[in-house]
Each structure stands twice: as C-alpha cells, then as structure tokens.
Design a protein around this nucleic acid. Structure first.
Lengths: 149, 149
DNA sequence: TCTGAAAAGCGCTCACA
DNA sequence: TGTGAGCGCTTTTCAGA
C-alpha cells in the first residue's frame, strides 16, 4: 500500500467506470500495470466491491436520523436483529451510557416513528433517543490519503 | 422509478461491474433495455456515480467515532470548515442541544484526539462530545426497496 | 419503451524485460 | 513489478416495432 495504490483508490472512488488506461495515466503507469495493482487491492480486501452510489432521496430515504439505543442486557450479539430492519443503514456497539448507535433512513417521520417502535421491540432494548438530521453538509467515503499519515 | 428500476439499483449496488446482459437477465429485459434504464437512472441523479467500496482499516481509518459538536453561534454555513478535515466523513446539522453531528475515522485514538482539537478550533464551536465505536455490526447502502413502501 | 444486431472500445492475458 | 500487443467480450448505438 504505497502512494500509487492510495492514488488509484482515490481515483476509483471518484469514478470506478473509467478505463485502466486513464487510471494508469493518472499514476504514471501502463494500463496493464494499473490493472495488476487494482487486482491485488481487490485480492487483499482493500477494495471490497464495485458499486453505485444511490441518491437516498430518490429511493424513499429522505429522512435521516441517528438513534442511541439503551439496553438492559448485553447487545453484543444482536447484529441480526438490527440488520433485519432495512431502514437501519449502520449499527455500532459504542462506549458510553447507551450501548448501540444506529443510522436510520426513512421516507417520512411517520416511518421513522415506526422504525423506532421496531427497534424498541428488540430483545433487551430499554429505550431510544433519536436525533433527526435537519440538513446534511456532506457524506463522503473514507479518504485513502489518511493512510499516508 | 418502478419495481424494475429498484431491482436494477439493488443489483448494481451489489456489483456494478457486471455486464448489462446479466443485469437485464435479472429483471427480464434485454441488455439494451437494461442499459437504457440505467442510463436514465444516472441522468435523473438516482445513480450519483460508480465507485469502489474501500476497507477503512486498510487506509488508516480503523478508529470510528461520532462527535456531537456544540456551538455558540449558527453553524448553518460552516460546511467547508468541516469538509476541510479529511478525517470527517459526514457532517449533519441536527435538531437538539448540539448543533452538528459528525462521523470521524482515524488510524489511532491519538489522531482522533487531534481531530477533536481541530474541530474545537472551528469558529463558533464551544464543545465536543465524542462517542467511540467499539464494534461495527454493519454499514450498508440505502435499500432501494424502501421506495416500494 | 423494448428487441436484436452491428461497430467501436476495453478488459484480460500473455510473452518478455 | 513493469511494458506492450492480441483476442474476445462488452459497451454503446441504431433501425425497427
């Protein structure tokens, strides 16, 4: 994982549909060499998959909220319970008073309320504190340049 | 945006490198028709871009934290100040006592501390409350099937 | 809006350095 | 780990329905 690899990752994050010739030119390599490096980045798992970025508002996810989930028992193996709710995009075990932090997207605040009800129904959950987002400044992928430290 | 479009989006999220022939077969259309639908999804902005999913841990982002940022003044036009910090992956204006919620990834907790210092230096910021993630259950893209309501 | 086919471009693999 | 070239497949386009 050198500077060239990080630059390749940055360019692929911006546009994964570009040709290997263009990608190679951006880092001063031939198309074949760029292809080989990207193949290895996939092999190592640094690149997980090629995907498309979907506008949340276009598919019924205009309302964004973060929910602190309090519990009375250990939530360490409740991943599936949260994953079963399609509106829950992220679920993390956190340090602090609450035990799980989840990111939720719904079309309306009524649907958000329904998701909170379904979270509350999960075994061990004793309460929820929802924080509704009024405006999103930006959402962006992790910068490979952080690795340059 | 009908059922076919939502299915196309779901398949593209899973693998944007597959052929239009395979994509069309998944929804019962010819490659040409699938191509035309995807082209329109891009045109409308439902698909923002084709990208790669990068493993955060592979590029110096192993530590994840959410930070509530309190302020003494209106933070509505401080988007650039947060965007200038590469470790800040998301920044949202929120309802509630704090005024901005940010998602941060760093390699170490020492670097997280440094990011908090730089956030504190932003004009109007009066305090930060960081919540460190101990374990991530999952992080996934918005489900196009939400739109089926 | 779809199908089917033709043309142009690219991915992938190879021999070689 | 790199280059450059070839074959084969895919993207992209278009006429027709």
């Amino acid at each position: 994982m050198d500077h060239i690899d990080r630059t390749l990752l940055t360019h692929l994050q911006q546009d994964a549909a570009q040709s290997y010739a263009a990608l190679g030119q951006a880092v001063g390599l031939s198309a074949g060499a760029a292809h080989e490096r990207v193949r290895k980045l996939r092999e190592r798992g640094a690149i997980r998959r090629t995907t498309v970025e979907v506008d949340p508002a276009a598919v019924g996810g205009a309302v964004l909220a973060y929910v602190m989930v309090d519990s009375v028992s250990w939530m360490g193996d409740s991943a599936e319970a949260f994953a079963a709710l399609p509106e829950v995009l992220e679920a993390h075990v956190i340090a602090g008073s609450a035990s799980v932090l989840v990111k939720v997207r719904t079309a309306t605040t009524e649907q958000l309320q329904d998701v909170l009800r379904r979270i509350y129904a999960i075994d061990g959950v004793s309460g929820t504190q929802a924080t509704v987002v009024l405006e999103t400044f930006f959402e962006r992928p992790v910068s490979p340049e952080l690795g340059a430290g």
